[in-house]
């Protein structure tokens, strides 16, 4: 079975400042990954790591500086208007804050009818209502509960489910969810996350789950890519990446999550950076400034993607050639 969506060497530069003092920041740098059918793929990282920019590039809100996004049969990656409609029919988005997704002055049902109309999903109101009712049932709501109501009449969790139902109308093969639970109350968070699991198992929908919350990512996802300052630093099965992280950044990130267990309190202390831009502008590995295992080569050259037991790690520590030379140097020092 081929990949549903394939991202190849995606790159996006943003330029800041005036004509004279221009500062270029590469928000997404040489990112490649693919999403298989019926799979939940997590794109995880801290704010400013480029995960949302990647999502915006996939959705076509931004034009990539270089690289390609290949979806299904569309192997050329060019986007004409008709292709765009076809593309968004297969790839739908869910955003972070459901109260910002919907216009507070419009009834929620308008969005459903609009989607039906835009994609020509049904002719006539009766058919449209049945279709809408079906998708709302899939998320545990019904058309009767939703019709005639404004966004403010729903709770955050409900409205996020409404937002997911709207995305499901076009019967997409891929949902792109950008921090879908960060605005939802803790007691309702799992109901949204479980919904993604159900959609995957029952309707074969794939989900790109963009999040900073590694605990829910572990719970719901099949594979994960950890991003740092525009690079994917580690990618692989969620079990091996999060339970035995290899990249020093993933290790730090994993250890910094406050676990809901009073017996697992932090013992070690960490230091923080004060300036973010600096890391974007680094020549070699962008984590070199904070890495506990930094070597000279890390500051100069971008590390290669190394395959370690099926996990892709962007780090010199796992690059045999580098470690061999290093071993020789150490041996020479000792000698």
């Amino acid at each position: 079975m081929g990949a549903l969506l394939e991202i190849r060497n995606l790159r996006k530069d943003f330029a800041f400042g005036s004509l004279l003092s221009r500062l270029r920041i590469t928000a997404v740098d040489d990112v490649s990954f693919h999403v298989m059918p019926a799979e939940i793929f997590a794109l995880a990282g801290e704010s400013g790591c480029g995960k949302t920019t990647t999502a915006r590039l996939i959705l076509g809100f931004e034009e990539p500086t270089a690289g390609s996004i290949l979806h299904g049969a569309n192997r050329k990656g060019r986007r004409r208007k008709r292709e765009k409609v076809w593309f968004t029919q297969g790839v739908q988005a869910i955003f972070q804050n459901p109260f910002e997704t919907f216009n507070p002055l419009r009834r929620v049902e308008c969005y459903f009818f609009e989607t039906v109309h835009n994609y020509g999903l049904s002719s006539g109101r009766k058919g449209a209502e049945t279709l809408i009712d079906e998708t709302l049932k899939a998320v545990g709501l019904s058309f009767r509960e939703v019709s005639g109501r404004y966004p403010s009449e729903f709770s955050g969790g409900q409205l996020q489910r409404v937002s997911i139902a709207r995305a499901l109308l076009t019967k997409p093969s891929l949902l792109l969810a950008d921090e879908p639970v960060s605005m939802v109350d803790a007691s309702l968070r799992m109901s949204i996350v479980n919904l993604f699991k159900r959609l995957r198992d029952e309707f074969d929908v794939s989900v790109i789950y963009i999040t900073h919350d590694l605990a829910t990512a572990y719970y719901v996802c099949d594979r994960i890519a950890v991003m740092f300052r525009g690079n994917v630093v580690e990618m692989g099965g969620v079990e091996s990446v999060l339970m035995s992280p290899r990249h020093p950044y993933t290790k730090l990130l994993r250890a910094s999550i406050p676990e809901a267990d009073p017996s697992k309190r932090w013992k070690a202390r960490i230091s923080l950076t004060d300036i973010e831009h600096e890391e974007y502008l680094r020549r070699g590995c962008r984590f070199a400034g904070r890495c506990p295992e930094v070597m000279d080569v890390c500051r100069e050259t971008v590390p290669p993607d190394v395959d370690v037991d099926g996990v892709q790690v962007k780090c010199f520590l796992y690059d045999e050639a580098t470690m061999r030379t290093k071993g020789r140097e150490v041996a020479a020092d000792v000698g």
Binding site: D185, S187, L188, R189, M190, N194, L214, A215, Y218, Y219
Partner: peptide
């Protein structure tokens, strides 16, 4: 019961068993 839901629904590393949220909304 609310605290039980709150604690039981917390995702944990190394535990992929199904977690349930409290029904309804606040």
């Amino acid at each position: 019961p609310y605290t039980q839901y709150l604690i039981d629904s917390l995702p944990k590393f190394g535990d992929k068993s199904l977690k349930q949220s409290a029904p309804g909304s606040p």
